[in-house]
Protein backbone atom coordinates (compact mmCIF):
# COMPACT_ATOMS: atom_id res chain seq x y z
CA UNK A 1 0.00 0.00 0.00
CA UNK A 2 1.72 3.22 -1.12
CA UNK A 3 1.88 6.26 1.12
CA UNK A 4 -0.43 9.12 0.15
CA UNK A 5 0.89 12.59 -0.65
CA UNK A 6 -1.34 15.60 -1.21
CA UNK A 7 -1.06 19.35 -1.53
CA UNK A 8 -3.31 22.05 -0.10
CA UNK A 9 -5.77 22.88 -2.90
CA UNK A 10 -4.67 26.53 -2.93
CA UNK A 11 -1.72 25.90 -5.25
CA UNK A 12 -1.60 27.74 -8.57
CA UNK A 13 -2.79 25.91 -11.71
CA UNK A 14 0.69 26.13 -13.22
CA UNK A 15 2.20 24.31 -10.24
CA UNK A 16 0.41 20.98 -10.66
CA UNK A 17 3.09 19.49 -12.92
CA UNK A 18 5.75 20.61 -10.43
CA UNK A 19 4.05 18.81 -7.57
CA UNK A 20 3.88 15.60 -9.64
CA UNK A 21 7.62 15.86 -10.22
CA UNK A 22 8.14 16.61 -6.53
CA UNK A 23 6.28 13.40 -5.70
CA UNK A 24 8.66 11.49 -7.93
CA UNK A 25 11.55 13.16 -6.10
CA UNK A 26 10.01 12.15 -2.75
CA UNK A 27 9.66 8.52 -3.83
CA UNK A 28 13.28 8.43 -5.00
CA UNK A 29 14.58 10.02 -1.81
CA UNK A 30 12.57 7.86 0.57
CA UNK A 31 12.86 4.78 -1.65
CA UNK A 32 9.20 3.94 -1.25
CA UNK A 33 5.94 4.09 -3.21
CA UNK A 34 4.02 7.33 -2.76
CA UNK A 35 0.77 8.12 -4.54
CA UNK A 36 0.09 11.77 -5.32
CA UNK A 37 -3.55 12.71 -4.87
CA UNK A 38 -5.09 16.12 -5.47
CA UNK A 39 -8.44 17.27 -4.13
CA UNK A 40 -10.83 19.71 -5.76
CA UNK A 41 -11.77 21.35 -2.49
CA UNK A 42 -10.55 21.93 1.04
CA UNK A 43 -13.55 19.96 2.31
CA UNK A 44 -12.71 16.89 0.23
CA UNK A 45 -9.11 17.04 1.41
CA UNK A 46 -10.20 17.45 5.03
CA UNK A 47 -12.35 14.35 4.68
CA UNK A 48 -9.39 12.36 3.35
CA UNK A 49 -7.33 13.53 6.34
CA UNK A 50 -10.14 12.57 8.71
CA UNK A 51 -10.17 9.10 7.18
CA UNK A 52 -6.37 8.80 7.63
CA UNK A 53 -5.83 8.69 3.89
CA UNK A 54 -3.01 11.25 3.93
CA UNK A 55 0.60 10.56 4.98
CA UNK A 56 2.47 13.54 3.56
CA UNK A 57 0.89 16.93 2.93
CA UNK A 58 1.97 20.37 1.84
CA UNK A 59 -0.46 22.04 4.19
CA UNK A 60 -1.73 25.57 4.59
CA UNK A 61 -1.28 27.01 8.11
CA UNK A 62 -4.93 26.64 9.04
CA UNK A 63 -5.00 22.93 8.24
CA UNK A 64 -1.57 22.48 9.85
CA UNK A 65 -3.20 23.28 13.17
CA UNK A 66 -5.62 20.39 12.82
CA UNK A 67 -3.03 18.01 11.37
CA UNK A 68 -0.47 18.58 14.13
CA UNK A 69 -2.75 18.82 17.14
CA UNK A 70 -5.43 16.33 16.15
CA UNK A 71 -3.69 13.93 13.81
CA UNK A 72 -0.13 13.74 15.13
CA UNK A 73 1.59 15.15 12.03
CA UNK A 74 5.02 16.81 12.34
CA UNK A 75 6.65 19.44 10.13
CA UNK A 76 9.48 18.21 7.93
CA UNK A 77 10.19 21.63 6.40
CA UNK A 78 8.70 24.97 5.43
CA UNK A 79 9.28 27.03 2.28
CA UNK A 80 9.51 30.12 4.53
CA UNK A 81 7.45 31.95 1.97
CA UNK A 82 4.87 33.79 4.01
CA UNK A 83 1.19 33.39 3.18
CA UNK A 84 -0.29 36.82 2.73
CA UNK A 85 -3.79 37.97 1.80
CA UNK A 86 -4.83 40.68 -0.64
CA UNK A 87 -8.26 42.32 -0.69
CA UNK A 88 -9.00 43.77 -4.11
CA UNK A 89 -11.74 45.85 -5.73
CA UNK A 90 -12.45 46.85 -9.30
CA UNK A 91 -9.92 49.37 -10.53
CA UNK A 92 -12.55 52.12 -10.85
CA UNK A 93 -14.36 51.31 -7.59
CA UNK A 94 -15.04 54.41 -5.50
CA UNK A 95 -13.77 52.48 -2.44
CA UNK A 96 -10.28 53.69 -1.57
CA UNK A 97 -9.89 52.21 1.92
CA UNK A 98 -11.30 49.37 3.98
CA UNK A 99 -13.22 51.76 6.23
CA UNK A 100 -15.28 52.91 3.21
CA UNK A 101 -16.84 49.45 2.83
CA UNK A 102 -20.37 49.11 4.15
CA UNK A 103 -22.59 46.33 5.52
CA UNK A 104 -24.10 44.25 2.75
CA UNK A 105 -20.80 44.04 0.86
CA UNK A 106 -20.50 40.97 -1.33
CA UNK A 107 -17.20 39.13 -0.98
CA UNK A 108 -15.87 36.80 -3.67
CA UNK A 109 -13.60 34.22 -2.12
CA UNK A 110 -12.39 30.66 -2.45
CA UNK A 111 -12.83 28.10 0.33
CA UNK A 112 -9.20 28.62 1.38
CA UNK A 113 -9.56 28.84 5.18
CA UNK A 114 -6.42 30.94 5.77
CA UNK A 115 -7.31 33.56 3.25
CA UNK A 116 -10.95 33.75 4.31
CA UNK A 117 -9.90 34.22 7.93
CA UNK A 118 -7.30 36.89 7.20
CA UNK A 119 -9.61 38.64 4.76
CA UNK A 120 -12.35 38.87 7.36
CA UNK A 121 -9.86 40.16 9.97
CA UNK A 122 -8.84 42.91 7.60
CA UNK A 123 -12.50 43.95 7.23
CA UNK A 124 -12.94 44.44 10.98
CA UNK A 125 -11.92 48.12 10.91
CA UNK A 126 -15.03 48.67 8.76
CA UNK A 127 -17.18 46.78 11.32
CA UNK A 128 -17.82 44.09 8.74
CA UNK A 129 -18.18 40.46 9.69
CA UNK A 130 -19.73 37.23 8.42
CA UNK A 131 -23.09 38.38 9.72
CA UNK A 132 -23.37 41.59 7.72
CA UNK A 133 -21.60 40.57 4.50
CA UNK A 134 -22.36 37.97 1.84
CA UNK A 135 -19.75 35.40 0.88
CA UNK A 136 -19.74 34.38 -2.77
CA UNK A 137 -17.72 31.19 -3.03
CA UNK A 138 -15.65 30.55 -6.12
CA UNK A 139 -13.56 27.57 -7.17
CA UNK A 140 -10.36 29.47 -7.90
CA UNK A 141 -8.73 32.88 -7.58
CA UNK A 142 -9.28 33.42 -11.32
CA UNK A 143 -12.99 32.98 -10.62
CA UNK A 144 -12.75 35.45 -7.72
CA UNK A 145 -11.28 37.98 -10.15
CA UNK A 146 -14.01 37.26 -12.69
CA UNK A 147 -16.73 37.72 -10.05
CA UNK A 148 -15.33 41.19 -9.37
CA UNK A 149 -15.04 42.10 -13.05
CA UNK A 150 -18.57 40.87 -13.75
CA UNK A 151 -19.94 42.97 -10.90
CA UNK A 152 -21.11 39.96 -8.89
CA UNK A 153 -18.97 40.98 -5.90
CA UNK A 154 -17.78 44.24 -4.31
CA UNK A 155 -14.48 42.91 -3.00
CA UNK A 156 -12.40 39.78 -3.48
CA UNK A 157 -10.09 37.86 -1.16
CA UNK A 158 -6.91 36.54 -2.78
CA UNK A 159 -3.83 34.68 -1.71
CA UNK A 160 -1.39 37.53 -2.49
CA UNK A 161 0.76 35.23 -4.58
CA UNK A 162 -2.29 34.21 -6.64
CA UNK A 163 -3.25 37.86 -7.13
CA UNK A 164 0.26 38.63 -8.35
CA UNK A 165 0.05 35.73 -10.81
CA UNK A 166 -3.19 36.89 -12.45
CA UNK A 167 -2.73 37.82 -16.10
CA UNK A 168 -1.90 41.46 -16.73
CA UNK A 169 -5.22 41.82 -18.58
CA UNK A 170 -7.18 40.66 -15.52
CA UNK A 171 -4.98 42.49 -13.01
CA UNK A 172 -5.34 45.76 -14.92
CA UNK A 173 -9.05 45.69 -14.11
CA UNK A 174 -8.48 45.25 -10.36
CA UNK A 175 -6.93 47.31 -7.58
CA UNK A 176 -5.51 45.95 -4.30
CA UNK A 177 -7.16 47.72 -1.38
CA UNK A 178 -4.98 46.23 1.33
CA UNK A 179 -2.49 43.38 1.61
CA UNK A 180 -1.48 41.65 4.80
CA UNK A 181 2.11 41.73 6.01
CA UNK A 182 2.24 39.02 8.66
CA UNK A 183 5.50 37.37 7.59
CA UNK A 184 5.39 34.57 10.14
CA UNK A 185 2.64 32.33 8.79
CA UNK A 186 3.51 29.88 6.04
CA UNK A 187 2.69 26.53 4.49
CA UNK A 188 4.66 23.50 5.67
CA UNK A 189 5.39 19.98 4.48
CA UNK A 190 3.97 17.72 7.17
CA UNK A 191 4.38 13.99 7.61
CA UNK A 192 1.97 11.73 9.40
CA UNK A 193 2.57 9.16 12.14
CA UNK A 194 3.36 6.33 9.70
CA UNK A 195 6.42 8.22 8.43
CA UNK A 196 7.40 9.96 11.66
CA UNK A 197 10.59 7.92 12.04
CA UNK A 198 11.84 9.32 8.71
CA UNK A 199 11.37 12.97 9.61
CA UNK A 200 15.02 13.82 10.19
CA UNK A 201 16.10 12.03 7.02
CA UNK A 202 13.46 13.85 4.97
CA UNK A 203 14.23 17.24 6.53
CA UNK A 204 17.90 16.82 5.64
CA UNK A 205 17.10 15.90 2.05
CA UNK A 206 14.58 18.72 1.64
CA UNK A 207 16.81 21.42 3.08
CA UNK A 208 19.66 20.47 0.74
CA UNK A 209 17.46 20.41 -2.39
CA UNK A 210 18.42 23.93 -3.41
CA UNK A 211 22.07 22.93 -3.68
CA UNK A 212 21.25 20.87 -6.78
CA UNK A 213 20.47 23.04 -9.83
CA UNK A 214 17.81 20.66 -11.15
CA UNK A 215 16.10 20.32 -7.78
CA UNK A 216 16.29 24.06 -7.24
CA UNK A 217 14.56 24.56 -10.56
CA UNK A 218 11.83 22.18 -9.35
CA UNK A 219 11.37 24.25 -6.18
CA UNK A 220 11.12 27.40 -8.28
CA UNK A 221 8.36 25.77 -10.32
CA UNK A 222 6.51 25.33 -6.99
CA UNK A 223 6.90 29.04 -6.25
CA UNK A 224 9.76 29.16 -3.78
CA UNK A 225 13.53 28.93 -3.56
CA UNK A 226 14.34 26.53 -0.75
CA UNK A 227 13.07 24.49 2.15
CA UNK A 228 14.02 25.47 5.69
CA UNK A 229 13.77 23.24 8.74
CA UNK A 230 10.82 23.89 11.03
CA UNK A 231 11.09 22.57 14.54
CA UNK A 232 8.22 21.56 16.77
CA UNK A 233 8.43 24.78 18.76
CA UNK A 234 8.12 26.99 15.65
CA UNK A 235 5.18 24.96 14.39
CA UNK A 236 3.41 25.04 17.75
CA UNK A 237 3.74 28.81 17.97
CA UNK A 238 2.45 29.26 14.43
CA UNK A 239 -0.54 27.15 15.40
CA UNK A 240 -1.03 29.24 18.56
CA UNK A 241 -1.04 32.32 16.36
CA UNK A 242 -3.63 30.85 13.99
CA UNK A 243 -5.78 29.76 16.92
CA UNK A 244 -5.51 33.23 18.46
CA UNK A 245 -6.80 34.72 15.21
CA UNK A 246 -9.57 32.21 14.66
CA UNK A 247 -12.25 33.76 16.81
Amino acid sequence: MPYQFTVSPDFGPNQLAGWHIFNTWLQRQLDTDIHFETYDSFEAQRQAIDEDNVDIIYANPYDASFLVREKGFVAAATPQKPDETTIAVLVDSPVQEIEALTPGSKIAQTNDPDISMMGMLMLEPANLNAGNTTAIHQDSYIQVAKALIQGKADIGFFLSEAFDELSSLVKSQLRPLVSSDIQIVSHALLIGPKLADRKEELTNKLTSMDADPQDKSLLQSLGFEKWAPMDEDEMEFMIDLIEALAA
Binding site: L121, E124, P125, E236, F237, D240
Partner: peptide
Protein backbone atom coordinates in the same frame (compact mmCIF):
# COMPACT_ATOMS: atom_id res chain seq x y z
CA UNK B 1 0.67 28.37 25.00
CA UNK B 2 -0.16 24.91 26.24
CA UNK B 3 2.39 22.12 25.76
CA UNK B 4 1.79 18.65 27.16
CA UNK B 5 -0.98 20.07 29.31
CA UNK B 6 1.18 22.80 30.86
CA UNK B 7 0.98 26.54 30.21
CA UNK B 8 4.50 27.55 29.16
CA UNK B 9 3.73 31.15 28.24
CA UNK B 10 1.32 33.38 26.36
CA UNK B 11 1.00 34.61 22.77
CA UNK B 12 -0.53 37.98 22.08
CA UNK B 13 -1.67 39.05 18.62
CA UNK B 14 -2.93 42.56 17.91
CA UNK B 15 -4.74 43.75 14.84
CA UNK B 16 -6.27 46.95 13.54
CA UNK B 17 -9.36 47.87 15.54
CA UNK B 18 -12.60 49.39 14.31
Amino acid sequence: NIRKGQVIGYTSVRRKPS
